[in-house]
């Protein structure tokens, strides 16, 4: 699968014939230097973007060829996104933010209970009705993770989830994501710059590291990747 930006002379091969298989229930890190195509890959996996060439088969369905209507359903039911800048809505409280994906549908008591359970899971059970503006970075990211889980997706895609956090808080977020794989059997894909995260994941029985450079996958890290 390839993703090519631009036209004719000014093309950028953001992803160059990437061939990747992701088994359910595992934890992956995608490591690589800036501009190597990590986010592009993640976005294509999350149906936020389409590949230029090739296909992305999810349970044998090529999501690259699905109409927008089915893509939003795929994003809703299969994927949970976690971003570097948490993107919480400041005018909703913590539990309100967890419930965002359900706003277009009627939110039932059962949904609220689930949101509360997820907040308990991410360790913010007591803060359900706090304003999100008062949360620390780590707490905000936990809310974002709870939000990504509300539709009970099989896959969590996290693009530099610790990028805005200090290393200790970052570590606890990674531990939380690992816990989701262990206890909830989620497939976790983490884009990161942080080699320590790759190390933690690499040492985990469910973990696997993927390296990417100039849009191409490589089996092993190269030295310059650790320059980050």
């Amino acid at each position: 699968m390839s993703k090519i930006y631009g036209e004719e002379r000014t093309t950028i091969k953001a992803l160059n014939q990437v061939d990747l298989e992701i088994e359910g229930g595992n934890i992956f890190t995608i490591m690589g230097p800036s501009g190597s195509g990590k986010s592009t890959l993640l976005n294509i996996l999350g149906a936020m973007d389409k590949p230029t060439l090739g296909e992305v088969l999810v349970n044998e369905i090529d999501i690259g060829s699905l109409p927008e209507r089915k893509l939003s359903r795929y994003r809703k039911e299969t994927i949970g996104f976690v971003f570097q800048s948490f993107y919480l809505l400041p005018n909703l409280d913590v539990i309100g933010n967890v419930l965002i994906p359900l706003i277009p549908y009627r939110i039932k008591d059962k949904d609220r209970e689930r949101a509360q359970e997820l907040l308990n899971l991410v360790g913010l059970g007591e803060r359900a009705h706090s304003k999100v503006g008062k949360l620390s970075g780590g707490e905000s990211q936990r809310v974002a993770i709870a939000r990504s889980l509300i539709n009970n997706p099989k896959v969590i895609l996290a693009d530099e989830p610790t990028g805005n956090l200090d290393s200790e808080t970052g570590k606890s977020i990674i531990d939380l994501l690992i816990k989701l794989a262990e206890e909830e059997h989620k497939t976790i894909i983490i884009v990161t710059h942080d080699p320590r995260i790759a190390q933690v994941v690499g040492e985990h029985p469910l973990g696997k590291n993927i390296w990417i450079k100039d849009g191409e996958l490589s089996e092993k890290p190269t030295y310059d990747m650790y320059c980050w």
Partner: peptide
């Protein structure tokens, strides 16, 4: 715009955002 993008990433349909 970012907010709408996030809403979409969580599965909101175009119709929902329009509404």
């Amino acid at each position: 715009m970012k907010e709408f993008a996030i809403l979409k990433s969580t599965g909101w349909k175009n119709r929902h955002i329009f509404l």
